[in-house]
């Protein structure tokens, strides 16, 4: 089948029911999207399908068709999406494993709602588990990226 991943047409010789997650990771070698639970409970595998945050672990590749898939590798050209910059400034990641999914969920939120309030952030992000407990840093980073609360805490020194 043919897929559009990060604005590139790619071919994948896989069964239609194979989840998009494994096509990305095993077939296409794009390992930035993570496997966490396999049942759409943790959010680690979140990608955008036509801009909509989607759990790739339960999305059959065959259901994607010509829709545009965006992964963490395609979120920005040089890792400089405002959220990625804010993530660095707030020093968000610990183990970092969930952060691709957190960023993709947050990016979809800001696209829909560029100035979310605290409650809207928490509502949008509560489907993504971070076992290291970086939740407060994630909130701060989203507020920083959306210009909501940028002065709350100084950036980590380089």
């Amino acid at each position: 089948m043919q897929l559009n991943v990060n604005n590139k047409a790619v071919d994948a010789d896989v069964a239609a029911e194979m989840p998009l997650l494994w096509v990305l990771r095993d077939t296409l070698g794009m390992t930035g999207t993570k496997f966490g639970c396999g049942i759409a409970q943790c959010g680690a595998c979140t990608v955008h399908v036509d801009g909509v945050p989607t759990r790739s672990c339960v999305t059959p590749a065959g259901s994607v068709g010509a829709k545009k898939v965006t992964t963490i590798e395609g979120l920005s050209a040089n890792g400089d999406h405002p959220l990625q910059k804010a993530w660095i400034a707030e020093g968000v990641p610990q183990c970092g494993y969930c952060q691709s999914g957190q960023l993709m969920t947050a990016a979809a939120l800001l696209k829909k709602n560029p100035k979310p309030n605290r409650k809207q952030i928490v509502d949008a992000m509560s489907g993504n588990i971070c076992r290291c407990g970086t939740y407060h840093q994630i909130v701060k980073a989203i507020e920083r990226a959306s210009g909501g609360n940028a002065a709350a805490k100084p950036a980590v020194k380089a």
Binding site: T31, I72, G79, I88, G91, G96, Q99, V156, K157, A158
Partner: peptide, 24 residues
Amino acid sequence: GKDIERIDIADKTRGAAMYGIDTR
């Protein structure tokens, strides 16, 4: 005692950090 930026942070915002599960 100073807050030096962790070296692993940037990679972890780009899906570029390589965990065991990413071994190919």
